[in-house]
Design a protein around this nucleic acid. Structure first.
Lengths: 232, 232
DNA sequence: CAATACATTAACATTTCGTTAAGAAAGTTT
DNA sequence: AAACTTTCTTAACGAAATGTTAATGTATTG
């Protein structure tokens, strides 16, 4: 299954943390592990997560403190607490911060998984930020990157593959400007090396084929730098 | 606090039920108590509730069965289960039906209260949207998703199974737009994995068969993303 | 002109989808 | 409770879509 949800797991017991991370990874979640509250906060700020699992009892910075800091930045991200014992007080504090759930160690991993699913399923990701733009017009084409359809205005529609789609979207977003190779590679292929670079060339060729229905549109190579979608 | 939230509490132990009801009432919830699954279902249908607390182990009709019936009528109402022992299997079944949480008896009433607050606070029920729409017109069809009937305008009516019905409804609600696989799977099958995905494909095939009485309607696959009901 | 970067086509492997059918599970009727 | 019906899942297998890599050739640069 595609688009994996990403989880920030903050757990000071390295053994338990590793095992839990592995278990979640097997179940198709992308897991980032931090071993204490300080590292947890750093990692939280570095990338976007869909859910956090926080051990409460941790050295340096406990899970509740970390949760408060996270809540200051993000009011909606689901939080699940792990408590070593059934410390009622910790649990109540957790809920006060805005926890979605807690689990008492030792817990059953299947139940954790069920909780995670339950929590993630009910949130239709109310990301208030920017709505994703997915409709474009350029040259004689209109392009819907959500439906992955490129339509020539006096011709046919053409389905695009995911890679074609992403690459064209990046080109269009940088219309008439340079799309640096590395940036596209790191975003679409998640790595920039000889092979991904060759692969990108293949996809540039495919896009050129589609776009040559409008002779005024060109994908120009900037040697050693990247590509530029332009109209003469 | 303005209008108090109302809770349906279904619990067969009359003593425990009464005490719990009192406790919740003191904390400003309007509580309706039912002593078994049958009575619970009757009362559920009589008035509107914001949340249900269901004991799993009950005579006549257990909490899980009741939950399924409730879910058929209301897809979003939060459900909390009470389990006498920590029966993992019951818990997992509960989550599969769409539970929001569970508690193992004996539990701390403050923690139950915290859970209730957490669940009720997290959203002013976003699902106000589609709630009551159940009659649709598209192409040469009219479709009643409450009666689960698909009618071809110059032909016959066709009964739809629950799954067929839900899937078609989601497609229609996203007419001409993408219905992402994961979203449909999580909503209808309550899980997204290889098998549910295969099952969904089977249902797409069935719907296509029904819809091909109107040749202008198509269910298009967007590879790796989902499906799109459209009219050419 | 040598070295590197790009272009294009094609072969291949992998993943995802479409469809049919068998049979398990749930629901109904008798 | 047995027999039947409907619904749903799972298996199986072919078809289609996608992405990578190889191979071969062309362009650009210093």
């Amino acid at each position: 299954m595609k688009s994996n949800k990403s989880i920030l797991l903050v757990e000071d017991d390295p053994n338990f943390g590793r095992i839990l991370k592995e278990y979640l990874t097997i179940n198709n979640y992308e897991v980032t592990l931090a071993v204490n509250g300080i590292e947890g906060f750093e990692k939280f700020n570095k990338s976007e997560f869909d859910l956090c699992i926080l051990d409460i009892m941790m050295p340096f910075k406990d899970g509740l403190t970390l949760a408060r800091e996270i809540r200051e930045i993000n009011e909606t991200i689901p939080l699940i607490f792990l408590t070593a014992k059934n410390l009622k007080d910790d649990v109540l504090k957790g809920y006060k911060i805005g926890a979605d759930d807690y689990l008492t160690k030792p817990f059953d991993s299947e139940i954790l998984l069920a909780k995670i699913k339950s929590i993630l399923n009910r949130k239709p990701n109310v990301n208030v930020e920017e709505k994703d733009v997915f409709e474009f017009e350029f040259g004689e084409f209109s392009f819907n990157s959500k439906l992955r359809i490129l339509t020539h205005k006096m011709g046919e529609s053409h389905k695009l593959s995911p890679k074609e789609n992403q690459l064209l979207k990046m080109l269009v977003l940088n219309f008439d400007d340079l799309l640096p190779r590395d940036i596209a590679l790191n975003k679409i292929w998640r790595d920039a090396n000889y092979f991904t670079s060759r692969s990108m060339d293949v996809y540039i060729a495919k896009l050129r084929k589609y776009l040559d229905k409008d002779i005024s549109l060109k994908i120009i190579n900037v040697h050693g730098e990247g590509f530029r979608l332009m109209q003469e």
